[in-house]
Design a protein around this nucleic acid. Sequence first.
DNA 1: CGCAGCTTTGAACGGAGTCAAACTAAGTGG
DNA 2: CCACTTAGTTTGACTCCGTTCAAAGCTGCG
Lengths: 225, 225
Amino acid sequence: MGLTPEDVERLDSIIKRGRPYHRGDHLYRGGDKFHSLRVITSGSVKTYSPNEDGGEQVLGFHLPGELIGLDAIQDDNHTCSAIALETTAVCEIPFSQLESLSSIMPSLQHQMYRLLSREIGQDTEMLTLLGKKSAEERLATFLLSSSERFKQRGFSASDFFLSMSRHEIGNYLGLAVETVSRLFTRFQDENLLHVERKHVQLLDIPRLYEIVQGADRAKPSQSRI
Amino acid sequence: MGLTPEDVERLDSIIKRGRPYHRGDHLYRGGDKFHSLRVITSGSVKTYSPNEDGGEQVLGFHLPGELIGLDAIQDDNHTCSAIALETTAVCEIPFSQLESLSSIMPSLQHQMYRLLSREIGQDTEMLTLLGKKSAEERLATFLLSSSERFKQRGFSASDFFLSMSRHEIGNYLGLAVETVSRLFTRFQDENLLHVERKHVQLLDIPRLYEIVQGADRAKPSQSRI
DNA sequence: CGCAGCTTTGAACGGAGTCAAACTAAGTGG
DNA sequence: CCACTTAGTTTGACTCCGTTCAAAGCTGCG
């Protein structure tokens, strides 16, 4: 990430290996005092913000290598909750130490700014998804984004297991469970993918990308004249 | 913001007063090279991300005192565009200088982290709005959020001018123009507010807060038993 | 004055939600 | 090991909120 080996060593010295979590365990809850950022090392995590009336908004699903808790720096309290979707291991990075370190390591400070900025960029992409896209486009986007993230981690881009439920996918995408279920069925009927419970195999990734870009909306394809 | 007077002075020394912008002028466009964060000093600004097919997603409306451009730190390029909604003045803060300064001023670094984190928090609130709320709740949220922000700046919380069009409000809230227009009319009929073009007067703020919290959804009011 | 761009209003449509029920899987405890 | 419970998924039928289409009113500006 643009850090020298000795920089990495210093960073490594403040990282603590946390205990493993089991499915359903909370890493933290909204309102908890914030002290550490966490990096997922294995497993997967769902972040969500519980809203007054018992319901919740799923904010994201997080895979190994991803950093969570950035939203809590704001006022030293977690604003959302994080829960393990399966057996999950994490590393904790005490934020006050990270902060001290970053003020004597400009390269680390730079990385932190970039990381925070990237999170903002991802959120705004999600805003476009929820503000403008159809159910079909949302699920296709979700599947391809999952695919890319698995690929990035050395797993298959076209054959993977989703650790979250249909309900959680729906919540995340701003859709009802039933809609998600129906779309999986439809996509399968159209030979875009094969799905059996949590096991997904993408069969026509190019076509999925077309769907994401809103094909079938105006023109069948964007043939430039 | 937790900075000493001399800290502020040093910060002030790197800030540049930019030229004023007129309605419709771009402060920057998606893809532009990033060099400065900007603070609105007067007027108002719309940020939006132009998507492939000509359409756009409005990401936010920004009032005096607010900082924009945080999303561009990520890779030194602006990911979205910013356009003046009226005659607007801004200050520019060259980011590389800010970064240098923050690495010798821990208090400034801390503020930067908080600022970035706050932006993330605001985005996730918006995700909940777009993912779960009805049209009614969205507009009420928008109006109260505007109200609070005006109040914070010393203006009236119940009587203000919205510098953006109905179309832009709709786009921001994930609604069609017609829906926004109809809702303004309905809110007025219900004596929640008085509206005449861009001039809005909130007449029943408590009731608007009830709407935001999803009143009329399950129970008429959340009377705890 | 006249045009162009907003805004409002009406009517009809449709996508996704809701309701309801059947069908799994996966536990759980006797 | 199997009856029973519980949670998640799928499917169908129906409803409704918000969109879309269409048209008329406004407003402001050259």
